[in-house]
Nucleic acid binder design. Structure first.
Lengths: 143, 143
DNA sequence: ATATAATTGAAAAATATTTTCAATTACAGG
DNA sequence: CCTGTAATTGAAAATATTTTTCAATTATAT
C-alpha cells in the first residue's frame, strides 16, 4: 500500500468514516492510476480485487472522497463524469487529451487576476478552478 | 431582437445551419437570461414563446451552439448540466453561487503560468479553462 | 465477544441524454 | 411566388447515469 493510500485511509478515519474493504479498494484504484476515471471505470478496475463491490458504493465513495477534497471531478468538453486524485495543497489538473493522463500542478498566483475581476464586477470571489488541456510527452511521440 | 441574437443567427446561417423557429427561440432564451440554465430550464422558458418545441431539439441546439463557441457548459460542483452564453473573444465565467448569475470576464494573460507548466511537465498545452465562483453584489446585500 | 450504528449490494426509481423515424419545414433555384 | 430537397423536427424508445430504498452485513468502540 503506497503512501497516498495510507494518508487517505487516515483522513477517512479521522473524518469519522469506517474504513471498509470496499472503500479501500476504490482508494487504491484512484491512487494507482494517474488518469481520470468514470465511476464505472473505477468500478471495473476495483472489481478485479474485490468482485463483490457494487457500483452504488463506488458512487458513494467518490462522493465522500470529493467531499474530503482527496479526489476531484475532471471537467471535460463532452461531460464531467470522471474523477482524479486531487493531491495536496492548492492544485489544478493538466489533462492529456490523448490518453486521459492527469497531472497536478501548483496553481501559481492568480490573485492579481482575481482581484481585478472582483473589483470590476463587485463580486466577492471565493473559489476558482483552472484546468489545462494538451498532449502529454508520450502521446506527442505517437504522432 | 437584440444584437447578440442577431449575431448568433448570422453565425448559424454562415455555418450552414438553417435558422428555424426553434433554434431562434433557444438562442433568445440564452441571450436574454444572464445565468446558467440546464437544457430542461431552457426548454421550459423557450416553450413560453414556442409551445411545440421539443426537449430533444434543445439538446441538439445547445450542441450546435457550443460547437460554434457561442455557448459554453458551466461546470458546477455538483454537476455540469448547465449552459451560458460564451460571449466574444477569450472569456471565462464568473458564477454567483447564490443566484446562478453568470458574468463573463477577459481572461488576462495566463501564458507565464501556462509556459511554466508546459516546461516542467513536457506537455503541449492547447487550451485552458478558468472559472471563478463567488457572490454577486445583489446576493451580498441579501445576507 | 458483543452491541450498534454505519455501510453494503441489489433492485427499483429517478434523472439525463441519445437515437430512431416519419412528418414537417427552411430555403435555394427556378 | 412555387417547388424540390435535404435538413430539421417532435415523440417515443432506447440508453446512460445517478440516487433511493431496504434488508443484510460489517467495522469498530467498549
Amino acid at each position: 500500500m503506497d503512501v497516498e493510500v495510507a494518508e487517505w485511509v487516515e483522513k477517512l478515519r479521522l473524518a469519522g468514516y469506517k474504513v471498509t474493504r470496499q472503500r479501500r479498494v476504490v482508494l487504491e484504484v484512484i491512487a494507482a492510476v494517474g488518469m481520470h476515471l468514470t465511476p464505472t471505470e473505477v468500478y471495473e478496475r476495483a472489481r478485479v480485487n474485490c468482485p463483490d463491490l457494487g457500483l452504488t458504493t463506488v458512487y458513494r465513495t467518490l462522493d465522500i472522497l470529493s467531499g474530503l477534497g482527496l479526489v476531484r471531478r475532471v471537467h471535460l468538453k463532452d461531460g464531467c463524469h470522471s474523477f482524479a486524485s486531487a493531491g495536496q495543497g492548492h492544485c489544478h489538473h493538466l489533462i492529456c487529451e490523448g490518453c486521459g493522463d492527469v497531472v497536478e500542478f501548483e496553481g501559481g498566483d492568480l490573485s492579481p487576476l482575481i482581484n481585478r475581476v472582483a473589483q470590476s464586477t463587485g463580486f466577492v470571489i471565493r473559489e476558482h478552478w483552472l484546468e489545462l488541456f494538451g498532449t502529454c510527452p508520450a502521446c506527442q511521440n505517437k504522432l
